[in-house]
Design a protein around this nucleic acid. Structure first.
Length: 507
RNA sequence: CGGGGAGUGGCGCAGCCUGGUAGCGCAUCUGUUUUGGGAACAGAGGGUCGCAGGUUCGAAUCCUGUCUCCCCGACCA
């Protein structure tokens, strides 16, 4: 019988399990401010890894980082009707710039009311559009490729750590192009960048595709997403890329003069991924012992735990550990130096080990007197924590042998996590479902996704389908880019099908 | 925002109905004995009960308001 590190089980109470992982892996905690979380060092360290790797990809595409204000004048939103409709209900608004004492309490000073309220940005299309209208004059200024790493605020009714928080961290790319073709190329480039990032560093398999009309970003002509399948079978929209047409260019006046001297509107795009990715990593790779952090985004890939006994042997153990840490840090995995922590905190080694198991450090190396004497290390792989008999899968091996294969081990763990999740995704997309109602009924049942062919209806016909799915608590996720050619009739309308679409429960 | 549940040392809870100014387990600190599957024993420290009013001689307990969290719904790039 395996004695797991957590009390909640994925299989029986996924929501409670998710929250326990966040607490026990020391990723984040409540802040006392509605919907806002404190991201703790291990959680923030994962975010920093995501930033570092993603930022390199963004720069590689020729996109340059900028920073725009947190506050956006209300009037900027009023310029684009669809956009404001989409965000009006969840905007935090600053109306005063000073507090005064009244009856022993601090209250906004009526004398210090802002002329025009400022919105705390929910996204930055409008303010970046205003800048682009200043920056772009000529076809020679295009494409204009910008990105910012920032926090945004959306006053959501119901929040969940990492998945939907009132404030979250993200990157938002904003680009302007001479024509639709160029803008569309950029939209799909960003989508592919996200797909490769999710499936690479995050080891999280996704389906990249276009969102149906009703799921589009407010103001967008087309929205694309990557969708990941969590271990409860629900979909997580893990990144989006939008072709905005000339909507925002029109609202902000982003125009350029072409080679013939004519003035034209730019075609713009925007694309983003957020701290939600961390929620995706948890629900993709976590197990009943906590998080299993993919090596590429693990703040520490290997943690050395010295087994100290507060006696004269300790110094020899620490020396051995220090030289082992230096040796491992000299290795390269995924083209970077291996990140190694020698954990010298003054707590018991066994407690330390379980703490790192819960945090999901990919490899835990325990070093005790016997290892020092024999020139060994005890290696615990987080991805294969237990042996078949339920005992911890801790192997004593010669130090030199371990050092020789340590980098490859990390890459093997990364690949293994992906393969495991990929098999789960592939196994749980059903293409033979003829009755959605009976397939999706039952709230707790793991049902995965269903893929059907459809005729891409719009307007009222689409609304009818959306409402029908809503009664089953399911939504259309996206139309996969790589779906096989269609052949037959639409699942909903009976008209000739033009593409395939994924349907499922979602976060 | 609607329905339900909950806020009491760091964490998890009891006490509340039948007011009398806090208790348990874990964790923490010290000591001793232990130590490669989350140690044992002994001693010690730490909270005025989410916050603000009200009732009362007296409020964790009763009343009102408010904030935050969890579940369901609505909402949701």
């Amino acid at each position: 019988m395996i004695k797991h590190a957590l009390t909640a089980r994925r299989a029986t109470d996924f929501a409670a399990w998710y929250q326990e992982v966040i607490a026990e892996a020391d990723l984040a905690e409540e802040s006392g401010v509605r919907g806002c979380m404190v991201i703790k060092p291990w959680g923030y360290g994962i975010w920093e890894r995501i930033q570092k790797l993603m930022d390199a990809q963004i720069k590689l595409a020729g996109v340059e980082n900028c920073y725009f204000p947190l506050f956006i004048p209300l009037s900027y939103f009023e310029k684009e009707a669809d956009h404001v409709d989409g965000f009006a209900k969840e905007m935090a608004v600053v109306t005063h710039h000073r507090l005064v004492q009244k009856d022993g309490k601090l209250v906004p000073d009526p004398e210090a009311k802002l002329e025009e309220p400022l919105v705390v940005r929910p996204t930055s299309e409008t303010v970046i559009g205003a800048a682009m209208s200043r920056w772009i004059q000529s076809w020679r200024d295009l494409p204009m490729l910008t990105n910012q790493w920032a926090n945004v605020v959306r006053w959501e009714m119901r929040t969940r750590m990492f998945l939907r928080t009132s404030e979250f961290l993200w990157q938002e790319g904003h680009t302007a192009h001479a024509d639709k073709a160029d803008a569309m190329t950029e939209t799909l480039r960003a989508l592919e960048m996200y797909r490769a990032f999710a499936e690479g560093p995050l080891a999280m398999p996704v389906v990249a595709g276009e969102k149906p009309e009703n799921e589009r970003f407010p103001g967008a002509d087309a929205t694309y997403s990557i969708e990941a399948m969590m271990q409860d079978g629900k979909a997580l929209q893990a990144g989006t890329s939008h072709y905005l047409g000339t909507t925002f260019a029109e609202a902000a006046g982003i125009r350029y003069q072409d080679k013939d001297g004519n003035h034209s509107l730019c075609h713009t795009t925007s694309w983003g991924v957020s701290t939600r990715l961390i929620g995706g990593v948890i629900m993709t790779h976590g197990d009943d012992d906590g998080l299993r952090c993919p090596p590429q985004v693990a703040p520490y890939q290997m943690v050395i735990v010295p087994m100290l006994r507060d006696n004269e042997e300790d110094e020899a153990i620490l020396d051995y550990c220090r030289s082992l840490a230096a040796e491992l840090r000299g290795l390269n995995a995924f083209g970077e130096p291996v990140r190694v922590l020698l954990d010298t905190k003054a707590i018991k080694a066994s407690n330390k080990r379980w703490a790192w198991v819960k945090k999901g450090a990919p490899v835990i190396v325990e070093v005790g007197p016997r290892d020092v004497a024999g020139g060994n290390v005890a290696v615990l792989r987080r991805d294969r924590l237990y042996k078949d008999d339920g005992k911890l899968n801790s192997a004593f091996i010669p130090r030199a042998e371990f050092a020789g294969k340590a980098a490859a081990l990390l890459e093997e763990i990364q690949t293994g996590l992906f393969d495991e999740a990929k098999a789960r995704l592939d196994d749980n997309i059903r293409r033979d479902v003829t009755d959605l109602e009976s397939h999706f009924k039952g709230d707790d049942k793991f049902v995965g996704w269903v893929e059907v062919q459809w005729s891409r209806p719009t307007g009222a016909a689409l609304d009818k389908i959306v409402q029908q799915l809503k009664t089953l608590k399911i939504t259309m996720r996206n139309t996969p880019m790589d779906a096989a050619p269609v052949d037959g009739l639409c699942f909903f309308t009976g008209e000739p099908a033009v593409e395939r679409i994924l349907i499922g429960r979602t976060y």
